[in-house]
Simulated scan of single mutants.
Amino acid sequence: MQMKSHISKVSQATRKWLQPYNQSLKKAIDKTVEEGLFSFEDIKFQIRTLKQKVDSGQIEEWAKRAELSEIKNSVGQKVLCLHAGNLPLVGFQDALGTILSGADYYGKLSKKDPYLLSGFLKMMDEAHLDNQIQYSTELADFKDLQADKVLFAGSEESVDPVKEKLFKLNAVNDNTEFVIRTAKFSIAYLDNEEPDTLRDMIEAVFRYGGKGCRSVAVIVSPFTLSKVKCHFTDYVEEFWLNNPQLKKPKENLVYQFAFNKAIERDQAWLDDFLVQETDDFPDQEFVLNWVVGDHDKVKELKSRFGNSVQTVYRTGESIDGIKTEFLSNAQTPDLWWEPDGIGVIDSLLR
């Protein structure tokens, strides 16, 4: 495989797929919205973000960072990607990285996001690349695959059942390497109340209804919730006006609100989201935990929550002793960002 030509073909096909005139992408978006899988606003945000990254040359830059060449590549490897479906196109990075590396791509698409990613893969298939590209929403279609590697993102509880199914199907064997990512949420340190900072925070918390491991579920701040509550809710309303939340919380959120009220815990009820002042582990959807504290508190929570934390964001100075990213990049990561600290292409080159 001529890697330079391969990288160029992948880049050109991805750019073509993201063009506004691509009718198949438009149909995939329409179908996804019609079936209530994701909101039009969230899909538009994701596609616009990807287009900006791709148009700025990030596919070529990713290949350069991974040092892909005729010598260093994943050509000949069979890689099975088990894609999640909690966000629109959440599997795009794994799919792109696998194909870019030169590996043969086998993708189990989520039934919660079957149209968007399949359109991208169809475009890749039509680019006449040298690697195999096969995909399905049915795991059984990968029977007897004997994959060399499996890329999987999900909860720790789901890892063993997934492995069991794969072995039963003979899709993997004892030599298959599993690259598993299980982080659930991110933490942000908010040290100012500037309008741009609050807007970045709202985007990081409420985009996609708070789903996704890069979404912020815990905010640590020197300010109490009661101090910023009114200011904060104004920005939430502004965000929701332009980005209505598609999925709604279950009624157990009402019980949590009642519980907080009973124990006199400060909170803000936002109809479809609950903000509460606590440093408990965030184990409910549509809930943001607000913690009063400093850098030391951030480090304590990251240590306590362990591998469940994907990223720690900051709005100002870096935090000694832990790796951080700017809050403004929470929902717009570079193509080569590393889920659970594991680079997609790097994991395939090992």
Results as ranks from 00 to 15, higher is better:
V218K: 10
A217V: 03
L253V: 01
F239S: 00
S303C: 13
V236E: 07
Y313M: 04
V218Q: 11
Q245G: 05
N260G: 15
F281D: 09
L274F: 06
F286T: 02
N252T: 04
S308W: 09
I202S: 02
G209A: 05
V298R: 14
V309L: 00
G293V: 14
V236Y: 07
K248D: 08
L253P: 03
N243R: 11
D280R: 11
V292P: 13
D294T: 14
N243V: 09
D280L: 11
V298F: 12
R214N: 08
L225K: 09
V216G: 10
F281E: 07
G306F: 05
V205F: 02
Q256V: 04
D294A: 12
I202L: 02
V254E: 06
N243P: 05
N243Q: 13
E317S: 14
I202G: 00
G306W: 06
V298G: 14
Q284W: 03
G209M: 07
R265L: 14
D296T: 13
W269R: 01
T311Q: 12
S215M: 11
K247N: 10
F232N: 00
V216A: 13
D234L: 01
N289F: 06
V287F: 07
K229F: 01
G210P: 07
K302D: 08
I263Q: 15
L270E: 10
L253N: 00
D279P: 02
F239R: 02
C213G: 11
P222C: 11
R214Y: 07
F223S: 13
Q267H: 15
H295W: 06
Q256I: 07
R304F: 12
K229Q: 06
V312C: 10
N289P: 04
Q267I: 06
T315C: 14
I219Y: 03
K211P: 05
F305W: 15
I202K: 02
C213P: 08
P222W: 11
F239I: 01
V309P: 01
W290K: 04
R265P: 05
N307V: 06
G306D: 08
K302T: 14
W240D: 00
E317W: 08
Y235L: 02
S226F: 11
P244N: 09
V298I: 13
L246P: 08
K229S: 09
T233Q: 07
F239A: 00
V309Q: 02
D234E: 11
D272Q: 13
G293W: 14
V218L: 10
F273P: 03
L225I: 05
V287G: 07
T315G: 04
D271V: 04
